[in-house]
Structure formats: C-alpha cells, structure tokens
C-alpha cells in the first residue's frame, strides 16, 4: 500500500507538472491580454506530433525535442499574428467561437496528415530504465525526467516573472494592461511574446508526454479543460496559482482514481464502494473546484486589482 502510494503520488506530480506547463501559458494569456484561448490545448497536441515527426526525420531524441520546441514557438507566433491579434479587443464570446474553430480545424488537420491511429515516440536510451525506490518497487527514469523538467521550467518561469524587467511588465499587464500601455510600453509586442512563449510551454508539455501517452488527434481537448480548472482554482493571471493549482489537481485526481475504493470501504461495503468509486473519483477535481470557488470566487491566489 505505501509503495503503491508513493508511485501514485509520483504519477500525480507528473500530471501536475504537465498541467502546470499548459496552464502557465493559458493563465498569462488570459491574465495579461484578457483573451480566452481555447486553442491552447492544440499547441500541446502539436508539440507531441511535431516531436514524433522530427524524430522520424532525425532519429535523434534531443534534436527532435529542440526542433519541435522551435516549431511550436513559430506556430504560436503565426497564430497570434494572423488571427488572435484581431480578437483581443473583442468580447469573450467572439474569442471562444474563433478559437473553437481553430480547434476543429487543427484536430482534423492532424488527423488528415498523420492519421487517426495513435502514434508514439520511443523513450531515449539515456532516460530508459527505472530507479529502485524500495525493494521490488521501481519507477521509470523518464517519468522522473518529466517531473524534474517541469520543476526546472517552473523555477525558471518564477525567476523570469518575478525578477526580470520583462516579468515585471507581464505582472503589470495582468494588473492593468491599458496603464502599462499608457506608460509607453509596446503592449502589442509584449502580448506577442507572452503568447508565443505560452504556446511553446504547452508544446513542451506535449513533447515530454509523447513517449508515455499515446499521441492522437484531440489529445489536447481534455487537457485543456483540466488546464482551465487549474487556472480557475489558482486564480487567473497568477503563475503561483497555476503552479499550486496544477499540483493539487494532478495529485488529487491521480490519488483519487487509485484509492477511492479503499477510502470508501471504510464507510460502505466493498460492492457499493466498487460501484460508486469510478464516478466519484472522476468528479473529484470538479467537486474541489466547485468548493474552492464557492468559498473563494476568484481562486486561491487572486491577482489583486484585476478587472473582470
């Protein structure tokens, strides 16, 4: 039980850091530009597909990762310049509709180009194998690498947002974008930068999971919903909120799915526990979100003074 618990806790952390990578861009784009981007999830999907594609061309994992990162960054820039830029001034409903159209298109485009069957990326030699946590209990190195890279990115992001000039502008933008613009900052360039960088982070999450999850059309959709849950729990525009929200959601969701039956057996019979556990564990994060929002309608770490 305790060994399984540690493994599931690590799995939860892994899901948490992935959600953080996706939610970070989403919460910044939302917080700074007040732009709802449903198409953020497809960046995650594209990251995974591009990694598989570049691996097919080069046969080298690290090169494929770097190329895919650059490609997702460029793709984010392309989307921003061609489409999203025109939508910042629109109301949220128009943004929802347009970005929903982009999801439909890209999901189908991916299916047309790469086929509907799931693809996968082999785990690189260097990161294969597993680490013994206890006698008879191993955990794959690659999954540690995911968790580690997530924390590294999180720390880097924290440093950039809190201790650099550009980070200061981003934070100021999340508080009051018109004021930042009025003070002579080129807000358009700031938006573009934040957007492209957020897209790349989501792409990075997709690249990292390509060897462990199946790479398939629509893989970004359910992740997008989870990322929205995360940023709403954390408070929109807050990187810190996204970080803790992501870990909370990742760990609770994973542990809930593994241990709900055991937990319920304390109160009810085994049969009953088995009957209700799957539904209860699936809805656990939504229950938590509802409870958090009922008590704190602006999330755990609200950005002070943010409008709307």
């Amino acid at each position: 039980m305790s060994g399984l618990f540690i493994v599931q806790l690590l799995n939860g952390l892994q899901l948490g850091v992935l959600l953080f990578l996706i939610a970070a861009g989403l919460t910044l784009v939302f917080g700074v530009m007040n732009f709802i981007n449903l198409a953020h999830g497809v960046q995650y999907m594209l990251g995974a597909y591009l990694a598989v594609m570049f691996y097919g061309y080069t046969g080298h994992f690290l090169v494929a990762v770097l190329l895919a990162l650059v490609a997702t960054l460029l793709f984010g820039l392309l989307l921003e310049t061609v489409i999203f830029r025109r939508l910042y001034a629109r109301d949220h409903l128009d943004q929802l509709l347009a970005t929903f159209g982009i999801i439909l298109f890209l999901n189908e485009a991916v299916k047309t180009v790469w086929g509907a069957a799931p693809l996968s990326l082999p785990i690189p030699e260097l990161l294969s194998g597993s680490v013994p946590l206890a006698p008879g209990l191993n955990y794959p190195v690659y999954r540690f690498a995911i968790i580690g890279s997530g924390f590294v990115v999180g720390a880097a992001l924290y440093a950039v947002v809190n201790h650099t000039r550009i980070g200061m502008l981003i934070r100021a933008g999340a508080h009051n974008a018109p004021m930042v613009s009025a003070l002579g900052v080129d807000i358009g360039r700031l938006f573009m930068l934040v957007f492209a960088f957020g897209a790349m982070l989501a792409g990075f999450a997709g690249i990292m999971v390509a060897p462990v999850f199946s790479v398939e059309p629509g893989m970004g959709d359910s992740v997008l919903i989870l990322a929205f849950v995360v940023i709403v729990i954390g408070g929109i525009g807050s990187i810190r909120g996204a970080f803790f929200g992501a870990l909370l959601v990742g760990v609770i969701d994973t542990l809930g799915r593994s241990f709900m039956v055991d937990l319920l057996r304390i109160g009810v019979s085994t049969g009953q526990a088995r009957a209700v556990a799957p539904a209860l564990s699936s809805m656990l994060i939504y229950v938590i979100m509802a409870v958090i929002l009922a008590m704190r309608p602006e999330g755990l770490f609200p950005v002070k003074g943010r409008q709307g």
Binding site: F30, I36, H92, I225, F228, V229, V232, I236, A279, L280, S282, M283, Y286, V287, M289, A290, L293, A294, P297, E298, G299, G308
Partner: peptide
C-alpha cells in the same frame, strides 16, 4: 462567481452530473 469563474463552475457541476 462571475465571468470565467462562472463558466468553469457551471462546467464543474455539469461534469458531476455527467459522471
């Protein structure tokens, strides 16, 4: 709740009903 928080909390309740 308001705005996007309302969007997400209604989603949460719908997901609960779904499950």
């Amino acid at each position: 709740t308001r705005g996007v928080y309302f969007i997400m909390i209604t989603l949460a309740f719908a997901q609960m009903a779904f499950y």
